[in-house]
Amino acid sequence: MARSSKPAAQGLFQRLSGWTPQLVLVPTLLAAFVYVVVFSLWTLWISISQSTLLPNMAYGGFGEYAALWQSKRWIVAYQNLFLFGTLYVLGSLIVGTLLAILIDQRVKFESVWRTIFLYPLAISFIVTGTVWRWIFHPQTGVERALNDLGWISAQFDWITDRDMALYVVVFTGIWHASGFAMALVLAGLRSVDSDLIKAAQIDGASMARTYRRVVLPTIWPIFVAVTVVLLQFAIKTYDLVVALTQGGPGVATTVPAIVVYDLMFQRGQIAQGAAAAVMILVALALVLVPYLIWSIWRDKQGKRTHG
């Protein structure tokens, strides 16, 4: 008995150890499945259920989506997302590219400059938003300083102005993210074949022209990647607005993620909150799915041309 059981146990052990790679992945796979698939379907179901303050999983139809798209607050939030997203991505790309080009000029203390431009990315949106709120607020910030300097009529109250507050969010967002664009564009600039640039300079092209016509066009895939990542940030933006303006004044700087939180945890409209969350997922998919298809297509093209 003892003799025969040993090889059997060994056999089982060996068979099991052949499965180790798969077994190791089981916990993460299970977690990822629950997290990605189950949780998404769950939220999707809540959005079409009869839930209000408490979950009620009986089917309730798509009424909450209709109600959401009829609420003024949500429309404003979505419009804000478009305006904020566009300006935030463009601004970060422009400032980031400019900084990358400046650093690319064989400047002294390159790593010091880079560290300075990138550090906002290490601190939280909460800290960023709180700090800039103090700076932008007319009572404590720039307006106050200008007044005390003797310019008594100076006015700088964008943060409390319904029409201008969103631009404060855009500015702060760019301050936070342009270092990210800089790091990626700089990596791109360094990867450009220097013969290409020499050739352009021998042809007598000025520096600005060399960058515009030769260098930047060759690294356009990097601009696409940065745009996609920043759009993702923009769609998920929440903390920054909470710390900076809390969505106000009024609803002037409300973004979709703030509406989700309010509906779910402040107003007890769980189903409508879930519907808003699904709309955020849809917005994200509209950005990411085309990008994914495009990158796969590009990979294939690359393989074909390189044999």
Binding site: I46, M264, A274
Partner: peptide, 15 residues
Amino acid sequence: LITLGVFLPAQMTLL
């Protein structure tokens, strides 16, 4: 599946 977790917005998982 695991990488999808990177992109999933937190709002979808809150409830």
